[in-house]
């Protein structure tokens, strides 16, 4: 009782919270996920919802609003009532979306809340392709531009942005064949319909160990904790880091006191030991960060991805 009193006093001295802020949230919160239930993003956000619920003491309900490569869910976040009770997931693909789709919301319409983490991208080769290493892959791609067929998301999706980034950074060109999600991409790779893919490590590691496909490398500074046997790009002589990150964002216009409470609560939830263990079990690489970290990442990727998309002739909807 005394401690709570002291904390309130301290908080009052710092931010002079209104009566509303003291009772915030005081009602169930909604976490909008712009992707279907069951996918990687959905699982990550459900873990956050669970952690946030413990921090705020109210239920945090996950609402899946999939469609239009995330644009529908992002719209739901942007147009939500800015009372701090509704927020949602935003990711790499969301930064790129407004350049491809005139109806998609831009980063300027969102309020950064907290950073979840970045999953490193990787390149996988099918068994049928006979590609032996990353160097072999790059050599073949450079020798025969557009001949290697790569399975990836539709333009703007995470694995599409990954392969487009590789093309630019490593100076080669391959054919990008779109699939609706990682599962069909992996299937096409196993069936030998495509020669390579650029999906995440957890989705392919078991097939690599069974010898049904080959993970050529992971494009992160260190090896992936789930696949310590896979070398990084850098170890193989390519200084390239590509990944897709996820974060939590809200609508613009949340009152400052509530915003602070929301940002702190989300970050504290993600920094618990329990959250770290659960996220690791599910295969996520987490790097919890605050709103400033999140915003910096948005701006950095906005510049990077615009360059990649512009070069690929994909900037259709709006110019910077």
């Amino acid at each position: 009782m005394l401690r709570r009193h002291l904390m309130l006093l301290g908080a009052g001295a710092l931010a002079a919270p209104s009566v509303h802020a003291q009772s915030f949230p005081g009602a169930p919160m909604t976490l909008i996920v712009p992707w279907p239930a069951g996918g990687g993003s959905d699982i990550a956000m459900r873990l956050i919802a669970e952690a946030a619920s413990k921090q705020f003491g109210v239920p945090v309900v996950v609402e899946n609003r999939p469609g239009a490569a995330g644009a529908i869910g992002h719209r739901a976040i942007v147009t939500a009532r800015p009372d701090g009770l509704t927020f949602g997931m935003f990711s790499t693909a969301g930064v790129a979306a407004p350049y491809l789709n005139a109806n998609a919301n831009t980063i300027d319409e969102l309020e950064p809340l907290a950073f979840f983490g970045a999953d490193p991208s990787a390149i996988q080769a099918s068994k049928a392709s006979g590609i032996t290493s990353l160097a072999d892959f790059v050599a073949r791609a450079r020798a025969n531009p557009g001949r290697i067929k790569n399975g990836n998301d539709q333009p703007g999706g995470a694995s599409f942005l990954a392969v487009a980034s590789y093309e630019k950074m490593m100076n080669f060109r391959i054919q990008k064949v779109p699939y609706a999600g990682y599962a069909p991409t992996v299937q096409a790779l196993l069936a030998g319909e495509v020669d390579s893919a650029t999906v995440a490590i957890p989705d392919t590691i078991e097939y690599h160990r069974e010898g049904r496909l080959k993970i050529l490398g992971v494009s992160s500074p260190t090896r992936h904790f789930m696949a310590p046997e896979i070398p990084t790009f850098k170890e193989q002589g390519f200084d390239v880091e590509v990944g897709s990150w996820r974060c939590v964002a809200g609508p613009k216009g949340i009152p400052a006191d509530r915003l602070k409470r929301l940002q702190d609560g989300l970050l504290a939830g993600m920094r618990t030991e329990e959250f770290a263990t659960k996220a690791r079990t599910a295969g996520f690489t987490i790097q919890p960060g605050d709103a400033a970290v999140t915003l910096a990442r948005w701006h950095a990727d906005d510049t990077l991805l615009y360059g990649i998309l512009d070069e690929a002739g994909l900037v259709k909807a709006r110019k910077r």
Partner: peptide, 21 residues
């Protein structure tokens, strides 16, 4: 299909990676 994808999701939460193993 989408429903089976949910099941795979349920497995991944428990740390079971999809695959023939």
């Amino acid at each position: 299909n989408a429903l089976m994808a949910l099941m795979v999701g349920a497995m991944m939460v428990h740390g079971i990676q999809p695959g023939p193993s």
